[in-house]
Design a protein around this nucleic acid. Structure first.
Lengths: 145, 145
DNA sequence: ATGTATGCAAAACATTTGCACCTGG
DNA sequence: CCAGGTGCAAATGTTTTGCATACAT
C-alpha cells in the first residue's frame, strides 16, 4: 500500500499521488518523464491532468521520494529513490539506461572538491555510449557517428 | 582573426558568426547561455537576432567549436572548445564554475563502461556544491540548505 | 549571381501558475 | 467542514522554424 510511503513523506494520500507512485513503482523502465507518466494515466483511464503530474513529481522530489535527472535530451526524467546514490550510463541508440556506483569515482570527486575548496552538495554523472544488447538497433557497429 | 577558425570549421565567414565567436573568446566567463551572448550583442549595438544566436551556436557545436552543457538550472550554456576534455564543478550559491580533470575518474568510467558492455561516446560530470570564494554570498556557511 | 545566412515573428516544447471546484482527514 | 489538492486553460521561458530579405563568395 503506497499510502504509507506518502504519509511518511508528509503528503496527503490523494488519488493522483497514489496512482503516480504506483506507476513509478511498477514501470519496467525506472526513468520516466512527466509525459510518460501522464500517458500511462490516460491509458489507465485516470482523469489526472498533466499539470498535476508535474506538481506531484515536484512534491515527491522535495519529499525525497524521487530524483529528477536531466539527461542530454532536454526533458527531465524522474526515478523512484530506491537504494542510495548511483550514477547512470545510457545508450544513445536505444535509450537503455543502466545504473552503477563506483566507489573510486565518488572518492575522487571528494578529493577534487576539497582541492578546489568546494563542499559537495550533489553531483550528476552520466556516461553516454552505445550498448551491446541484442535489442539495440545499432548493435555491432563500431562507433556510430 | 576568427575568420580562419570559421573557415577551417567549414562555415561561411559571416558577421554574426564572427561576433559570436569573439564574444565566446573574450568573455571572462567561459560558460555562456544564448541569452548571455544575445545581451552582449545588444550591448555592442550589433543587430543580430536571438534566433541567429541559437542557430550559430548549434552550428558551432556541430562543427566542434563549442560544447553545449546542461547544468541543473535547465538553460543550456555553451563553452568554447579550448584544450581537451574536462568536467565541471559549480557553486550553487554564486554560480561560479570551475573546470577539472581527474585521470582516475576518467579511467574508472572506462572500466565501468567496459564492465557493462558500453562503448563510451562522451560523458557529463557536474559536481554541485558551495565554494569558498570571498565573492560568494553564502561564504562561511556550513552547508546551505 | 546564387545559394546560404539572417531578422523577425510565430510556432513548438516542456513546465508552471491562476483560479474555481473537489476531496481527504 | 476546511485546508489543501486538482483540472483546465492560460502564462512562461527556452529554443526552433517559416519566410522574405540581405550577404558572402
Amino acid at each position: 500500500m503506497e499510502g504509507n510511503d506518502l504519509r511518511k513523506a508528509g503528503l496527503k494520500v490523494t488519488l493522483p499521488r497514489v496512482k503516480i507512485l504506483e506507476i513509478l513503482e511498477n514501470s519496467p523502465n525506472r526513468h520516466l518523464s512527466a509525459e510518460d507518466i501522464y500517458r500511462r494515466l490516460v491509458d489507465l483511464r485516470e482523469d489526472i491532468g498533466l499539470a498535476t503530474v508535474y506538481r506531484v513529481l515536484t512534491q515527491f522530489e522535495s519529499a525525497g521520494l524521487v530524483t529528477r535527472h536531466h539527461f542530454a535530451d532536454g526533458m527531465a526524467v524522474f526515478e523512484l529513490n530506491a537504494g542510495p546514490h548511483h550514477d547512470h550510463i545510457l545508450c544513445l541508440d536505444c535509450g537503455h539506461v543502466e545504473e552503477f556506483v563506483d566507489a573510486g569515482i565518488e572518492e575522487r570527486q571528494n578529493s577534487v572538491a576539497e582541492r578546489l575548496g568546494f563542499s559537495i552538495s550533489e553531483h550528476a554523472l552520466v556516461i553516454y555510449g552505445h550498448c551491446q544488447r541484442t535489442s539495440c538497433p545499432h548493435r555491432g557497429k563500431k562507433t556510430a557517428d
